[in-house]
Design a protein around this nucleic acid. Sequence first.
DNA 1: CGACGTGTGGCACTCCGTTCCCCTTGAGAG
DNA 2: CTCTCAAGGGGAACGGAGTGCCACACGTCG
Lengths: 236, 236
Amino acid sequence: MRDALVAAAFRLFLERGYEQTTVDDIVTLAGVGRRSFFRYFPSKEDVVFPDHERCLADMTAFLAASGTEHEPVRRVCEAARLVLLMYAENPSFSVQRYRLTKQVPGLRAYEVSVVWRYERALAEYLRGRFTGRRDGHLRADVIAAAVVAAHNNALRSWLRSDGRGEATATVDRALEYVRSAFGPHPEPSPDERPTPAGEPPRAAVARPEDVVVIVSRRGTPLWRVVQEIETALGRD
Amino acid sequence: MRDALVAAAFRLFLERGYEQTTVDDIVTLAGVGRRSFFRYFPSKEDVVFPDHERCLADMTAFLAASGTEHEPVRRVCEAARLVLLMYAENPSFSVQRYRLTKQVPGLRAYEVSVVWRYERALAEYLRGRFTGRRDGHLRADVIAAAVVAAHNNALRSWLRSDGRGEATATVDRALEYVRSAFGPHPEPSPDERPTPAGEPPRAAVARPEDVVVIVSRRGTPLWRVVQEIETALGRD
DNA sequence: CGACGTGTGGCACTCCGTTCCCCTTGAGAG
DNA sequence: CTCTCAAGGGGAACGGAGTGCCACACGTCG
């Protein structure tokens, strides 16, 4: 029934345009009652995005199931990938919809509001992970927006190419850019990752400008830190 | 006339709610014909955001008038500030509208689509400035989204405080965060910049996961480093 | 057989937004 | 003073989206 309505709607939308098609046209073509249309789709716009509701639910479930062992920024990037996978499931359908929304302002506005709900889901998750952190809410909102923008940038370029090529590769590259800008620490090199608890501090990543950086876990005995610094400086 | 319609509309919206108020109610209260309402506002939602159209035009003009002597990211931050200034012109009106949009889903959706147009204006400008740069479009979209998100974050926190306090200070801080992430050079945060030669090491940026980072210039006397670590750990 | 829950169709209604036409007002030309 | 013309406002009616209500056709269970 849903599928029949969606199919009928898209046939008419592509044939004579979205605004030139009334709900009555759709239901008569599908052979169902007008009232049934609004049972399955709260509005005429919703028939254009039939699976976003489910996808949004999947995303929130995915985020809700994340533990503290996941790095937050990486996690929201993975969540954004879920949306891409939904698009990639039906490339031809996605491309048709893209062409439609591109030229119907009302649909663009509706799509924007849908995207906004994804963004809020990501931001809410990040806010939870950033509680206590300085400017936690600000960082969460900004990073969520950046992830969504990168995702959409890559998605649209894939759609413009008529769904040819690997969508995931493009999106991953775009998300990698965001991760590099906001990463936990600007993408810690192995030298900058904290040492496992109990292990001695690792010392002295030599950066330009003669700067020494020591990375250590809080609570490490001081003498071990000093020892590490000494060897780092002495080796100079 | 516009003003009379806006005033009448908000009186009724605050009195009995947005959806419970019909356009006929507004025009009868304002004492004008129904047709005149739609002459000034293309839709019922537009009466809630009467000056966004002008503000968007101002922003695009501002960006169009920018030359290459302006640093792009800084420029879009200044453009975003224009929106804030519009809100700050009528704090009480802005706060009322904020409360309204917060609880009416339809208005939220409309506001989102308005915000999206601002974002597109910023992104278009940045795309122009980033032509030829690697991933120019991607960077433009992501930075525009980040700027808008930071702006909105600060704006909403100002609106939640009923418009008390300096709006510009909050927004500037938020935008500064974006600039620090995307600035011309990755712009290390003050805590991560090396200390000037001769100055004592600065200690202990507490990052999540119980990690302590010490940044110091190579050649700093060891005792000063240890001292700094001790105070950093001791403060815990 | 009848009661009941569920999914569907049909009708009528409200309201938004638009189209078409008429009215007033006021300025300028004859 | 009258005619004309343009512009801004008002009114009537219409099309279409979305909703509420009720009736009907199925099934299942008692």
